[in-house]
């Protein structure tokens, strides 16, 4: 059906925003693909041939894998806990940090993990160590910071699916003699799988695009793609390199999320049709 002119006018502001984003994406692609001598893949060849850039690329994806795995492993029991508690206040407490800027939350971790921070003060006070141990400006710091920021998202994804699982299936399996582990692995986990996959996809995507947390809690020797783009853009003013890194980041994100989306289709097909 065609739209009336009035309806089209109502859509215009949102269309304008979409077109603006499109313009930005296009300009980014243009700057990375088009050099002085016409269309070229030089910027990408440069990225792939630079040892540091490739190591940043691999490190970023390793971090995304690690952070998504930790988030799922922590968020699943947390979601079960929240469903058992039957109390909105707990859910609110988990969601509350979403209202606090990530730069503030990351700063909070600097106060906890820093050389004169809470953990080191406690360890030295108790006489366990004499010199502060290094908890940030390394991979540990970034993982803690990112896991902390993304747990609410992961928990919410799993919670939505888990809370809809039909309890009678669980009780039925138990009544028929299935042990707790068997109930979990054959009933609960498969039914909650769409939530787990959604959580993993969201956290993966958020981690590889992260800028602030790797910048503040990570080491300068081992950057992530986000902090490398920040560095190229705002410290060394190398727009073309930052641009091609951003495009490689987006393409590799799509490639990494694809298997999860396929798995989601497969899982959803295997699940029994929803009974109402």
């Amino acid at each position: 059906m065609r739209l009336s002119r009035a309806a089209f006018l109502l859509l215009l502001p949102v269309l304008g925003m979409i077109l603006s984003l499109g313009t930005g994406v296009f300009a980014l692609i243009e700057q990375s693909f088009v050099g002085a001598d016409g269309l070229s893949l030089k910027a990408f060849q440069a990225f792939v041939s630079r040892r540091e850039a490739m190591s940043v690329f691999l490190y970023t994806h390793q971090m995304a894998l690690l952070v998504s795995a930790i988030c799922v492993v922590v968020s699943f029991p947390l979601a079960v806990f929240l469903v058992r508690k039957q109390n909105q206040a707990y859910v609110l407490l988990i969601m509350m940090p979403l209202l606090v800027s990530i730069v503030v939350r990351t700063y909070g971790w600097m106060v906890i993990l820093g050389p004169r921070g809470l953990i080191n003060a406690a360890l030295m006070g108790a006489g366990i160590t004499t010199a502060p141990i290094r908890l940030m400006f390394n991979t540990t710091g970034v993982v803690i910071g990112l896991v902390h920021i993304y747990i609410p998202f992961a928990t919410l994804s799993i919670l939505t699916v888990y809370s809809k699982i039909d309890r009678s299936l669980v009780d039925g399996a138990a009544a028929l003699g299935a042990g707790p582990w068997r109930v979990f692995s054959r009933i609960i986990l498969p039914l909650a799988m769409p939530g787990v996959i959604a959580a993993a996809s969201i956290v993966y995507l958020l981690t590889i695009g992260a800028v602030v947390t790797p910048l503040l809690l990570g080491s300068i020797q081992q950057m992530m793609l986000g902090s490398m783009i920040y560095d190229q853009m705002l410290v060394t003013f190398d727009f073309p390199s930052a641009g091609s890194a951003a495009i490689i980041l987006t393409l590799s994100a799509a490639l990494a999320i694809l298997p999860l989306q396929l798995a989601d289709r497969w899982v959803t097909r295997k699940l029994p049709a929803e009974r109402s």
Binding site: L11, V14, L15, I18, S20, L21, T23, G24, V25, A27, L28, Q31, L205, L206, I208, G209, A210, V211, L225, G226, I229, Y230, M233, A242, G243, A246, I247, L249, T250, A253
Partner: peptide, 26 residues
Amino acid sequence: LEMLVQAPLLLPNAALAMALLALLVQ
């Protein structure tokens, strides 16, 4: 249209920032 409205969520944050920067430079 509805998919494109969600597009900013599908781009990794650092890439989205670069696209917005490219837009503002233009």
